[in-house]
Amino acid sequence: MEDLEILAKIKDPETKNYGFNLLVRKYQQRIYWLIRKMVIDHDDADDLVQEVFIKIWQKLHLFREDAKFYTWIYRIATNETLNFLRKKRNKYFLPIYDLQGELLQKLISSPQLDGDEVQMKLQKALLKLPDKQRLVFNMKYFDNMKYEEISKITGTSAGGLKASYHHAVKKIEKLLKDD
């Protein structure tokens, strides 16, 4: 079902819950995987994906219909994810809290992983990128999104994103080579 049809159902008080349920079912997997690749841990991703949809429910009245609905949803999801990671870093008031080490540990010990050795190496290398660069890399490399789409979500120019992605690719290839 098209986003506009779902939105119309959500706006109608009689079909509001049904419409929202359709929305969750349509986007839950894309949003979950976007978050999961960033936070690695399933329980964290589960909490975050729920918070994202609750926020969408609460802020639906603020959505302007001249924008694309999925862009708006992705923006909420990326902001929540980056805030989560930022809060985690600042949680212990330590200037160099090793979030990268924590995520790496979760990656190694998670029972819910099913990749070969090379894929695991790639994930480990990705953790060495800054959060925003990792997010952009994931959207481009794994989700095959266009720079224009990512630009609308992140608010960064398409040119800036291209440069960032190119830089990330070079960095990862070097990390994989050195490993």
């Binding site: 690749k37 399933h42 998670s110 819910q112 992983l113 090379v118 894929q119």
Partner: peptide, 18 residues
């Protein structure tokens, strides 16, 4: 490198999430 998703979720996770 294979681009397949290496992360997994518990069984019927997406059925119950909504």
């Amino acid at each position: 490198i294979d681009r397949d998703n290496i992360f997994k979720v518990p069984e019927s996770y997406f059925d119950e999430l909504p």
